Amino acid sequence: MTTPEVPPPGLSWVTADRAAALWTVRRKYVPQVASAHGVGTKEQKSYGTLGETTITMYSYAEVQRVVAALESGEVVLAPSWRADTEEGVRGARRDALTACGCVVLMLAVVIAVALLSS
C-alpha cells in the first residue's frame, strides 16, 4: 500500500480531475463516488468574460481516505467506472463518440437551417 500523498501547504480542496486521477476513475463518476463515500464538497465560483462558472471542489483529506479504502479493498468500484479497466476504457470511448455525434448533429442542423432560410 502506498503512503497517502501529503498536500502542499494550503491545499485542502481538489478539483474533480485531481480526485479522478487519485481514485483512477472516469471523471464523470467522481460525483457519485464522492457522494457514496461521504467526501465533502464545496462550490467555487469564478468570473470571466463569458460569465460565472461554478466548479465543485472535493475535500483533499476525504479524497485521500477513499484512496486508502480503494487500495485496501474496503471499497470496490464498478469496472465501468474505473479508468484502468477494459470496461471503463470502452465507456470513455463510447462517451467521446457520443459527444462527437452530438456536435455533428448540431452542425447539420445549423447548415440545414441556413440552407432552408436562403
Rank of each mutant, 00 (worst) to 15 (best):
Q32E: 11
A16W: 05
S46G: 00
K28Y: 10
V113M: 12
L70Y: 08
V30H: 09
T54H: 10
E62G: 02
A108P: 00
K28H: 05
Q64S: 11
A34R: 12
W23V: 15
E52C: 02
V103D: 02
P9W: 11
M1D: 05
V89W: 09
T24S: 04
G88V: 04
L50H: 14
I55D: 12
Q44F: 01
S59E: 15
D84G: 05
S35M: 06
M106I: 10
A114W: 08
T3S: 03
A96L: 09
G48A: 06
V63D: 13
G10A: 12
V104D: 02
T53Q: 07
G40C: 10
V104G: 00
V103E: 12
D17M: 10
V30P: 13
D84I: 10
K45P: 05
V14T: 14
V33F: 00
V66S: 04
A68V: 13
T54M: 11
T56D: 12
W81G: 09
C102L: 03
S118R: 14
E5H: 02
T41N: 10
P8V: 09
A96F: 03
V30Q: 05
G51D: 07
T41K: 04
L50Q: 14
M106D: 01
Y29Q: 02
L116W: 13
R82F: 10
A114R: 05
V6A: 10
Q64R: 03
V76C: 01
